[in-house]
C-alpha cells in the first residue's frame, strides 16, 4: 500500500530529491577545493607533516570525482569532507610550524642579547 503510494507520487518528489542531493556535493566540492588551495598557498609543501595531509586531501578529492558509483551523493559528500579536513589540518600544521620557527627565532634573539649584554 505504502510502496504503491510512493511510486505514484515519485514524479513529484524525485526531481526535488535529486536537485537537493545534486547541489550539496557541488558546494562541498567547492569548499573542499578551496581548502586544498589554501593549504597549497599556505606553504604546506614546505612542511613534511603538512605535505602528507595535503597529498591525502588531494587523493580523496580525486577519488570523490571518480567514484565507481557517482550517484552515491552521500559517499561523495563524505569523501569531500574528508578531503577538506585533511587540507585544513595540512594548513594548520604548516602555520603551526612557521609560528614555532618564528618563536624559536625570537627566543634565540633574546638569548643572544642576554649573552652579549653579559660580556
Amino acid at each position: 500500500m505504502f510502496l504503491r503510494r510512493l511510486l505514484l507520487t515519485a514524479p513529484f518528489w524525485l526531481p526535488a530529491a535529486c536537485a537537493t542531493a545534486g547541489t550539496a556535493p557541488n558546494e562541498r566540492m567547492e569548499s573542499s577545493s578551496a581548502a586544498i588551495l589554501a593549504a597549497e598557498n599556505g606553504g604546506a609543501a614546505r612542511s613534511a607533516d603538512a605535505d602528507v595531509y595535503l597529498k591525502l586531501a588531494k587523493d580523496q578529492f580525486a577519488y570523490a570525482q571518480r567514484l565507481p558509483n557517482p550517484n552515491d551523493k552521500d559517499r561523495v559528500d563524505r569523501l569531500l569532507r574528508r578531503a577538506q579536513v585533511d587540507a585544513e589540518l595540512s594548513l594548520a600544521l604548516a602555520h603551526g610550524e612557521e609560528q614555532k620557527t618564528a618563536a624559536q627565532a625570537a627566543i634565540d634573539k633574546v638569548t643572544k642579547f642576554n649573552r652579549d649584554a653579559r660580556r
Binding site: 589540518l89 594548520a92 603551526g96 614555532k100
Partner: peptide
C-alpha cells in the same frame, strides 16, 4: 588534530 595544531600555533604566537 586541527584543534591541537591551532592550539600549538597560538602557544607559539604567545611565545613569540
Amino acid at each position: 588534530q586541527i584543534a591541537e595544531a591551532h592550539a600549538g600555533t597560538a602557544l607559539a604566537e604567545k611565545e613569540t
